[in-house]
């Protein structure tokens, strides 16, 4: 039992050779996999994945019935997911929080994902009063236009979004209108090298020389 030799993972396989030097990109999924492609950004949401609990299934139906302007999004596993247009984001957020049969008052996570042509901002919201409930809201910020990607801020609905939005602004360059204090948060104030979490970011700063070559 103590000799963990047989418990060590079988990482000796040949498959590792295929790891390659490729930079991860938004490319269509392997033909064999069942999941929807990420790059499509929920456009092919005809088949929604199964939800783990009946409570989430009820929540999905309630949201779909009450808020018909939301488009179901198929990429998310385990939670009902919806896509909203930028113009109706704030209104939808209010309804999600305040409607008693939805009641998602706890914003757990706010993330930005760069899909090259647009940036998706993803809201993971849950309910403290009804622990079984949770849903995902996605909104796209287009990169076209002179102002760059922008979205309305949801800090009026979920105050905790404040720093999360600052982080998305800092690392992905999405401006949030009506944000109380939109400044850089993680990067230094004078940073001018672009937006690190974007796909086309390349670090132009002087690097410490690496003696051992990088793959």
């Amino acid at each position: 039992m103590a000799g963990g030799k047989d418990a060590t993972p079988d990482a000796t396989g040949r498959g590792a050779a295929a790891g390659g030097n490729s930079v991860p990109m938004a490319r269509p999924a392997d033909s064999g996999s069942a999941g929807p492609t990420v790059a499509a950004g929920g456009q092919d949401a005809a088949v929604a994945p199964e939800l783990p609990t009946p409570e989430l299934e009820t929540l999905r139906q309630v949201i779909a019935r009450r808020l018909s302007h939301l488009e179901p999004d198929g990429a998310t596993v385990g939670l009902p997911a919806f896509r909203v247009v930028r113009e109706r984001l704030l209104e939808t957020a209010r309804q999600w929080r305040d409607a008693p049969e939805i009641g998602l008052e706890y914003l757990s996570c706010l993330s930005g994902v760069d899909y090259r042509d647009h940036i998706d901002v993803v809201y993971h919201v849950f309910s403290v009063a009804h622990p079984g409930r949770g849903a995902v809201l996605k909104v796209a910020a287009q990169k076209t236009g002179t102002a760059g990607p922008w979205l309305p801020s949801v800090t009026a609905v979920w105050p905790g979004a404040e720093w999360h939005e600052r982080e998305v602004f800092d690392l992905l360059g999405v401006r949030f209108t009506d944000h109380p204090d939109l400044r850089r948060i993680l990067l230094p104030e004078g940073f001018s090298g672009g937006y690190p979490l974007r796909r086309d970011f390349s670090d132009e700063r002087v690097q410490r020389e690496r003696k051992v070559r990088q793959r």
């Binding site: 990482a11 000796t12 590792a16 050779a17 790891g19 051992v212 070559r213 990088q214 793959r215």
Partner: peptide, 13 residues
């Protein structure tokens, strides 16, 4: 070279 590939921060050459 398998360890070289397995190393996440690529510190083996």
């Amino acid at each position: 070279g398998l360890c070289e590939r397995a190393c996440p921060p690529s510190c083996i050459e």
